[in-house]
Amino acid sequence: MTRRIVKGILIGAALLFFLVPIYWIVATSFKQWPDIFAIPPKFIFQSTMLHYKALFNLDLEEVAKFGQAGKSLFPPRFVNSIIIAGVSTLLSVTLGTFSAYAFSRFRVKGEGDLLFFILSTRMLPPIVVGIPFFVLYRTLGLIDTHVGLILIYMTFNLSFAVWLMKGFIDEIPKEFEEAAMVDGYTRWESFVKVVLPQALSGIAATAVFCLITAWNEFFFALILTSERARTAPPSIAAVQGTSGINWGQIAAGVTVFLFPVVIFTFLVRRYLARGLTFGVIKR
């Protein structure tokens, strides 16, 4: 009995440790100016939507009254994040599913080596590939373009998609397609009509992981974009008010930004271990 109580307390403490910081930033985004910096910190406060209005450039007059000059750059960058993460995910999952199927079903020469080559590209530190990309993109005029960032995120997620999808496709019995092909389907038809529907939940999980990675990415966005194609992460960090760091608006940006990630985490909770180890862990 005492053991159970101690256990409960420890688990409760862990929950607090991991969740209070997130709660705190979300709460801060709804606090009025003086409350944000109140000592002692305020746990009960009157909420305001001011920081969200400022973030999305709504009700500029009211926002201006509180001394936050200038338009927020967040909305277009939020849209950029959606476009770039979405398109790059679509591409890497599509390409990844195709080659995962090939690795799973066909005899590929040097399969093991190829797969590990693919995995090793994911291990490269972003900063190491970032330098030649910067030089290359400047020559090609790809700096600060959506295409440029999409290409990088696609590549970055591709190896991951191949590995994860290979695990999922390996689990679909070959017999299904073979039966379909005996019935006169071509290989392509059986891939589309038999394998893809079976792999759907795997594809969805892979897509969610790619989406989160691209969504969260900071470094490439920082060095390869400045205005037009800049995504949300580097711009949330750069919100400076007239009087130092504008924590209210940062908190609002952070909240808006992490909300979809939390939702997606719950959607793929069954696949988290699998997704984070490139499918090495199967359950």
Partner: peptide, 24 residues
Amino acid sequence: LVTTLILIPMMLSPVVVGLFWTFI
């Protein structure tokens, strides 16, 4: 629910995490 809630931090963007911890 408890295990999934505990897993949330690792899914967040390091930038976002760095920002709110700077605040905390």
